[in-house]
Design a binder for these strands. Structure first.
Lengths: 199, 199
DNA sequence: TAGATTGTTAATCGATTAACAATC
DNA sequence: TAGATTGTTAATCGATTAACAATC
């Protein structure tokens, strides 16, 4: 479930505020869902709350982190070190979510060898050995649209089994590859749909 | 509906291939949904197809663009010109989706005045006049987590009614503001959940 | 006409919510 | 004990799918 991420964020916030305990009502109102939804979601994974009291913030937070598999650091590579790739390489949120960026790749000779966020940019030719060396599991693809399919295939051939594709293009890959598309324009498109026409 | 964006993408691809006509079956298989789903979705907005023949690719594409409100260019600003902000400012997908980036803002004196993607970076102090000048409707927020709430309020005060927030933090804003959260780490989190533990 | 494919209805499925007994 | 709040069941709601008459 996606909502677990929202709950985690809410709990992190409450924890920072120093709050010890939270009711499903409270969590729900922050996450924008009904209290019964929260209870249903959580009870699917176990009984984390105390009747009459609510949920222990810190404890529930730990549980959700466990469920999301955040406890393990997943070695992750970034392929394509343009602005977006650089942003991802530096993105502070990843580490705490269990993603450890271990290597960067690009095929532009003007970039290869330079460092971003303390990591050297590798040539695509080094993909196989570097992936193997770091035992990388996940690839973030931030290459131009036209290159995406080809690069994705290379990455899969190198042994990566999970890809997050940021290019606005549909990739066709073997079904065993865990593929996730993030299209920045798309988020805005649906926004636009709900936006009233300007007066 | 979000799926309309997928259909649009599929149609664009088919159009480029030079295909004149497409069946719901075909569109569905590319978009990863059932044919009946496609027909249902489309029929909600009108009768765009011809029984026995399918849908005219170009025509349907125009219809969907209309529905999504893409025909109008929405003046859009980017607030926070770090790596992510720069990536968005240059992102080629936006123009074609009806978003026209008209101005960039930052409060770092080392950035103000410089140009990214041909646009000058304005000081946050110029927010009100510049927003008014360009009649900006949408703001993309790519500022650090700690600054997000404050900056969002300034942007709203300047007259913006739609915000896409890229900071991994929940903003509390007046209900009339159209708010959309894009959390990059979150996409990966759910990926992680489905990822089998490494052997 | 016969084959194909839509638009739409009805059936199915799953997800959300309300309600409440269990219990802290 | 009384009040609060969970975990879970049953009811509701909406979304997906199958099926098929309409029709190109």
């Amino acid at each position: 479930m996606e909502r677990l991420c929202d709950y985690l964020r809410v709990l992190t916030m409450l924890d920072r505020k120093g709050q010890q305990t939270a009711s499903s009502e409270e969590i729900g109102s922050w996450a924008g869902v009904k209290a019964s939804q929260v209870r249903k979601d959580l009870s699917y994974f176990g009984e984390f709350g105390r009747r009459g009291l609510g949920y222990d913030v810190e404890q529930l937070r730990a549980h959700i982190r466990d469920i999301l598999g955040v406890q393990r650091q997943r070695p992750t590579i970034v392929v394509g070190v343009g602005n977006l790739g650089s942003a991802l390489a530096c993105y502070p949120g990843f580490e705490s979510h269990g993603f450890q960026i271990v290597a960067l790749f690009d095929n532009d000779p003007r970039r290869i060898g330079y460092k971003v966020s303390g990591m050297k940019i590798h040539s695509m030719l080094d993909l196989v050995p570097v992936v193997r060396e770091h035992r990388a599991e996940i690839a973030l693809l931030t290459v131009p649209e036209q290159a995406a399919q080809e690069v994705a295939e290379k990455v899969v051939a190198a042994g990566i089994r999970a890809i997050v594709n940021f290019a606005p293009v549909l990739l066709s890959l073997p079904p065993e590859v865990n593929l996730r598309n993030v299209d920045l324009a798309r988020e805005l498109e649906t926004l636009c749909f709900y936006l009233p026409p300007k007066e």
